[in-house]
Design a protein around this nucleic acid. Sequence first.
DNA 1: ATAAGCCCCTGTGGGC
DNA 2: TGCCCACAGGGGCTTA
Length: 281
Amino acid sequence: MPELPEVETTRRKIEPLLRGRVIERIEHDAPHRYRDTHLAVGRRVTGLSRRGKYLMLQLAAAEADGEPDALHDLELIVHLGMTGGFRLEAGKHTRVTLTTDGGTLHFDDARRFGKMAVVRPGQYATMPTLAGMGPEPLTDDFEVADFVARAVTCGAVKPWLLSQKPVSGVGNIYADESLWTAQIHPAQTRLNAEEATRLYHAVREVMGAAVEAGGSTLSDGTYAQHDGEAGAYQHRHHVYDRAGKPCDRCGTTIEKIVLAQRGTHFCPQCQKVQRQKVGAV
DNA sequence: ATAAGCCCCTGTGGGC
DNA sequence: TGCCCACAGGGGCTTA
């Protein structure tokens, strides 16, 4: 469930299970994927936060006893990858088992693209995407003027969004949905101010609505939350996984292409590539 | 410095 | 039915 809305939904749902708990064991057999997890043992989870698609558990000495302003001296970073998620029961694809004084959570990850690491707070040198993460789309840190200025020189706009640099947390689904909303072709380069402004507002609108809906869960239920609850935003997709169906805005058949190795869905009528006029006033 | 390409993994579904 | 290929919501690394 790896885009911002799904990660944020996961954060909210597992927070009550973890906040204030002391980690007793973290079991797995892949130390290169789940780095330094032994450092978390014996510490108390004082809070759960999120940056882009990364979850972080704030850890403090167990004696801190859940005080909100306890000095947390380590962070457990979790990235769900493509297929990662927490479960109450162990399953065929359980990769990590996290036991606290309040119960057990299983990290399931069929494709094993998920990662964990225990680090000093803010020490993200081994995670370059996290270290260079752009602003959160739903906070005031995400500023239209800055976004517009960067978009003027950007390469193909969809890969640019996926880079996590202009804004954090946008993945394949929400990139396609945002570009449809803004009526911009995913392969367009160098947006003008008007286009970039539309895209800025589209990203905020789409991400906000998706968080509110609890994210997207595909029809096979793969991306349901730990308690089996599904998100609802999949019912509001306009282009993602809708190739061959009519555009909700103009009725033209939605197309699917491959762009930067990712499936890309768009309306060829509403989202035409605009060539910027050289020397335009 | 930035961008494009390949790679890491496993499972599933469609086409033959 | 069985096999093979293509594809799947991510990110890191190498190369140009």
